[in-house]
Amino acid sequence: MEEPPYVNLVPPDNETGECKTDRAVPCRVAPESELVGVNMTLAIRNPKYYMCCSGFCIDLLQKFAADLGFTYDLYRVEDGIWGVLNNGTWNGLIAEIVEGRADVVVTSFKINSERQTALDFTLPFLETGITIVVTKRTGIISPKAFLEPFDTVSWLLILLVSIQVAAFTIFLFEWLSPFGYDMKVSPQR
Results as ranks from 00 to 15, higher is better:
Val38Leu: 06
Ala24Thr: 14
Val36Pro: 03
Pro26Glu: 11
Lys63Thr: 11
Glu18Gly: 09
Ala66Asp: 13
Gly55Gln: 09
Ser33Lys: 07
Ala65Trp: 08
Gln62Val: 09
Val29Met: 11
Glu32Gln: 03
Cys52Pro: 07
Asn39Arg: 03
Met51Cys: 09
Cys27Gly: 13
Arg45Ser: 12
Pro5Tyr: 06
Met40Trp: 09
Arg28Ala: 04
Gly55Phe: 11
Ile58Gln: 00
Phe64Thr: 03
Asp13Val: 00
Gly37Asn: 13
Cys27Asp: 06
Ala65Asn: 04
Lys63Arg: 15
Leu42Trp: 13
Lys20Ala: 14
Asn39Cys: 01
Ser54Gly: 10
Leu60Ile: 01
Lys48Ser: 09
Ala43Glu: 04
Phe56Asn: 05
Met51Asn: 10
Phe56Ser: 08
Ala24His: 12
Asn39Leu: 02
Asn14Cys: 08
Gln62Ile: 13
Arg45Leu: 08
Ala65Gln: 03
Ile44Cys: 00
Val36Asp: 06
Glu15Ser: 13
Cys57Phe: 07
Asp22Ile: 15
Leu35Trp: 02
Pro12Asn: 00
Pro11Gln: 11
Val7Asp: 01
Met40Glu: 15
Tyr50Gln: 01
Val7Ala: 02
Met51Glu: 08
Lys48Cys: 01
Val7His: 02
Glu34Ser: 12
Arg28Tyr: 06
Pro26Asp: 11
Gly17Thr: 06
Ser54Lys: 12
Glu18Cys: 05
Asp22Tyr: 15
Cys53Gly: 07
Thr21Asn: 08
Tyr6Gln: 07
Glu15Lys: 12
Ala65His: 03
Cys27Met: 14
Asn14Gln: 13
Val25Ser: 04
Phe56Thr: 08
Met51Thr: 09
Lys63Glu: 15
Gly17Pro: 00
Cys19Ser: 04
Pro11Tyr: 03
Val7Tyr: 02
Pro47Phe: 01
Gln62Ala: 09
Pro5Glu: 05
Tyr49Thr: 11
Pro47Gln: 06
Gly37Trp: 08
Arg23Glu: 14
Glu15Pro: 00
Leu35Pro: 00
Ile58His: 01
Glu18Tyr: 10
Cys27Ser: 09
Gly37Leu: 09
Gly55Ala: 06
Val38Arg: 04
Glu32Asp: 05
Ala24Glu: 11
Asp22Gln: 15
Asn46Asp: 13
Val25His: 09
Asp13Asn: 07
Ala65Glu: 06
Cys52Ala: 04
Lys48Gln: 10
Val38Trp: 07
Cys27Ile: 15
Leu9Phe: 13
Leu42Cys: 05
Ala30Met: 08
